[in-house]
């Protein structure tokens, strides 16, 4: 059976596109990942201080940036971008199920919440019982409470 396997590993590492593993794109990817993370943290900090980008907009931005980071890790660090297209598709297409998966389950969750808020008075009222002051971005009063 070993004769079938003409793409022998030592072969594979020498004479195809895999040899394009040089350092420059690696560091470029590193800076991109670092930059995106810094942008996320900066936005979060600005939101904490000023409340300016509203939480909904911010969450959308976070999701886009997260997907961008995931793309760079998979494509460059895991080298998937440089594989044969058929192989990329056998991984990318099943992963698309996540799109449905996320939408369906989050939708279901919020629908369940809406139903309970409408029909379960106890559940709805439990939310109005405050055990602590609403947390402000720069709250200090919680530190002592927990001890």
């Amino acid at each position: 059976m070993s004769t079938v396997e003409t793409t022998s590993p030592s072969h594979a590492s020498h004479d195809n596109a895999h040899t394009t593993f040089d350092a420059k794109p690696i560091w470029r990817t590193f800076w991109i990942l670092l930059g995106i993370t810094l942008v996320e943290i900066t936005l979060a900090t600005i939101h904490l201080k000023t409340g300016f980008p509203s939480k909904y907009i911010l969450n959308g931005i976070y999701l886009i940036l997260t997907c961008a980071k995931a793309f760079y890790i998979i494509a460059e660090f895991m080298h998937l971008r440089h594989e044969i297209k058929n192989m990329i598709m056998t991984i990318a297409i099943p992963a698309l199920i996540f799109v449905w998966f996320i939408i369906a389950f989050l939708w279901d969750g919020s629908s369940y919440n809406a139903l309970r808020n409408r029909y379960d008075a106890h559940y709805r009222d439990a939310n109005n019982v405050k055990v602590a002051p609403p947390s402000e971005p720069t709250d200090k009063e919680h530190g002592s409470k927990e001890q």
Binding site: T6, T7, P9, N16, H82, E83, N86, M87
Partner: peptide, 21 residues
């Protein structure tokens, strides 16, 4: 995606179709 010589028959046997170990 990696450039593949035209007419390369990946599924005709004798080689790994994804060119990956």
């Amino acid at each position: 995606a990696q450039a593949i010589p035209a007419g390369q028959k990946w599924w005709s046997g004798g080689k790994s179709p994804f060119n990956v170990e």
